[in-house]
Amino acid sequence: MGKNGIGKSTLLRTFSKVQKTVLGSIYFDEKNLEEYTENQLSKKLSLVLTERLPESQITVFELIALGRQPYTNWLDKLTNLDLEKVNTAINQTEINHLKNRKFFELSDGQLQRVLIARALAQDTEVIILDEPTAHLDIHQTVLIFSLLKKLVKETRKTIIISSHEVNLAIQLSDKLLILNDKKVLFNTTENLINQNAFTSLFPNNLIKFNKELQQFVINKI
């Protein structure tokens, strides 16, 4: 996490090879990211982006099944294994009732679940989500965060997200990467709190980090 414009999305887009590295190189499983073909990488890493999907008529099921493309043959035929993975993803994200809807009929919260299901169906060790709760209200945001937390527990996948929801991220994440103008901190949430890492995240005149509550609070005006 970090403030607006610090480069959260840029970092995630670079990790996922959506954009080229500005400087340096990235190693994934001891192999330079540049050396992965698209297909190799697609079996290791799946994405949930903030960009809007083009307006098509694909159904929720079709959208999730697209996650199986790295494994299907040239005709994109779904095997029993593929169908099983798709159905597991649908169950894990609890969207069985949406399966046959067109994706453009869904609310933002439902669509986010569907996109997460698509990433799950891709069956990768790592899932990267860029601001998964950007358009959601607080209730939907908590639902998505707890879903992600549950998925980490159940599937043992590594889920990397960028988020503006600082308070929720502190409560729910195992490890945090804090991007600052001056330095970059990466540690477990607990250690970061003890290191006073959050006090310098935002200018102090408006909001402060309250250590006992483990939350940011607005200064009394």
Partner: peptide
């Protein structure tokens, strides 16, 4: 149909 970035991430 999902856009170029998703298509790329699908291999």
């Amino acid at each position: 149909l999902l856009g170029e970035n998703y298509a790329k991430s699908l291999g």
